[in-house]
Amino acid sequence: MTAATDSNGSGGGLRTLRIGPRLTGAQAARRAALARKLRIALPILAAILVAAFLANARRDQPDEVFLKDFADLGAAPDELRMANPRFAGVDGKGNPYEITAETALQNPEAQEVVELVRPRAVTSRPEESTVVYAERGVFQSKENILTLKDGVALERAIGGRTYVLRASAATVDMDGETVVSENGVEGESEAGLLRADSMRAYNAERRVVFEGNVSMRIFPGKTKAHRPAENEGEQPQ
């Protein structure tokens, strides 16, 4: 329906109606048939939609995507086991740390205590990062303390060399930024060996203290300065 307007642009009342040609008999018949079809099809469509909704609502298999998110979660009757857990946080000075492990076991009665298999803690500071890992560990998330057992190893730069310091047990205090081992520590690097009864690493002060029967062996032949120049070909004994 289009509006015809007079010269001064105002269309008023009947004058706006356009008289179209009358429907022919065939056109009217087609229109009536369409109406009859719609009268049947629309209710059927509505019924299908309602049925689909009801079917979906009462379906008892949980949603696959939902299931996949929690596939790693195996809830034994009294503990929660998680695979590849990752704890991230900041220590007392705002430096980031991250603890990862192969598996974590959380005891429901003491949720802040998590047992870890093959934990690995990395504490990062602007100038260096300290890496410590072990076979087993327990993380107390309230105190931010990680107790490590069996095959503990701490990687630390000493005199331009990265020493791997090994111990049977150690305690990592994330907030205090210390790593303490009281059960004997043995260290090794390309340029030397190191041994002591106990070790305390104070990451914030870039300081490490070894106590009790401390012995350090430096291999002059292994330090860069002493390595013979290629053309000399002299091999250290």
């Binding site: 005199g159 030397g192 870039r206 300081r207 203290v209 430096i218 002059p220 004994q237």
Partner: peptide, 24 residues
């Protein structure tokens, strides 16, 4: 390199009751 004998590749063994390392 700091050594106790000239031009020796023998290892330097240092022992003591405690050792503190701060930076270098």
């Amino acid at each position: 390199l700091g050594q106790l004998v000239p031009d020796s590749d023998a290892p330097i063994d240092i022992t003591g009751n405690s050792l503190e390392i701060v930076d270098d």
